[in-house]
Design a protein around this nucleic acid. Structure first.
Lengths: 182, 182
DNA sequence: ATCCCTTTTTGACTTAGATCAAAAGATTAG
DNA sequence: CTAATCTTTTGATCTAAGTCAAAAAGGGAT
């Protein structure tokens, strides 16, 4: 979910600190399972997480969140309905979290927090629009290339099987695309 | 861009009213052309607008906004870069608009405005996530069906040629899908 | 009405990418 | 180190959807 201003904003971070719950998750650990209500917003200190949902017997990754970024089952966290998303660690991960109530409190009482939230979601939205457009107008090859150019460091961190579903293509197709430009 | 709480929130609407500029655009009129900086946020009172961009010699619709909804070249409006989007009226349209400066002012001075902005973008984001997922996991047929079920009233208002690009398929494919279930 | 122009439909052909299946490489646990 | 498991690659089809081209249907203007 795009860049997170929190860690760059020491004043806000200081104010929230007393409320943050810090946890360490090992590789493969599931942080939140689909079907439950997402109760926490996570600030990722280190590590890598994938967000996925199941459809037609398959898992489709719709997001990766790494150190410095924010994570939540956004649909559920804001609406209160059970989430369709499962969040799982791809690497060992350390994160700090707030409950929804604490976040709501912060929106009302921490100066600049509401604005930060709005700007954060706005940029996440802009990012997603681009991603959406790329699936509608670009070929599988081009989508991979674009990913390679914009987040080359992620190529080694995300298993091919996860990345392919994120890019909207089969694992075999991604493997072949990767092969042809050796 | 999803539902707009503004018209449902008389207090906020009253406060903004003095600053709103009201305009009427005829069918086919271009409200903002790509390549320019999007300077206004539009509240649509009546009518229907398409947002599109050009790629590979084609126009791709990425959004439709109708009465009661909000419109802006979101990328440009918030970042200040020239927009890649053109907004054009599909029907005769009446809307009220604010400049970016006025909106910023409102975020800081109109009680509840910042929160409204954040919630608005959050819901727009959630909507878009769903749309994104549908392009990645569903067939052209299923996407059309889904659109038919969720916004049946739009079928008669949006020309097929525009709708097809919005749904991420060729005009011919959409025509054929529509034909087979007479 | 009639002409012109835009939008939609229909037909024939092509292709990107999916699926199914199996081999080859990596990782992890014991 | 070796077995067992998981991940990636390679190969052989198959199909949904795209492209190109032309006909049909709608909509405005005069």
């Amino acid at each position: 979910m795009s860049k997170l201003p929190l860690f760059d904003s020491p004043e806000i971070f200081q104010k929230l600190k007393p409320y943050l719950k810090t946890e360490r998750f090992s590789k493969g650990a599931v942080i939140e399972e689909s079907g439950f209500i997402s109760k926490r917003l996570f600030f990722i200190q280190s590590g890598l997480i994938r967000v996925f949902y199941r459809t037609g017997g398959k898992e489709v990754c719709c997001h990766f969140a790494k150190e410095g970024e924010i994570l939540t089952g956004i649909d559920s966290f804001f609406t209160g309905n059970p989430s369709i998303y499962t969040t799982q660690c791809i690497e060992e991960t350390v994160c700090h979290s707030l409950t929804k109530e604490q976040l709501e409190w912060a929106f009302d009482h921490v100066e600049g927090m509401n604005r930060m939230g709005r700007e954060f979601v706005t940029y996440a939205y802009i990012d997603l629009v681009e991603r959406y457009n790329s699936v509608v107008t670009m070929s599988a090859q081009d989508r991979y290339q674009q990913f390679m150019q914009t987040q080359p460091e992620m190529l080694n961190r995300i298993p091919l099987g996860y990345l392919s579903t994120y890019l909207g293509m089969s694992q075999e197709t991604l493997s072949r695309i990767r092969a042809q430009k050796a």
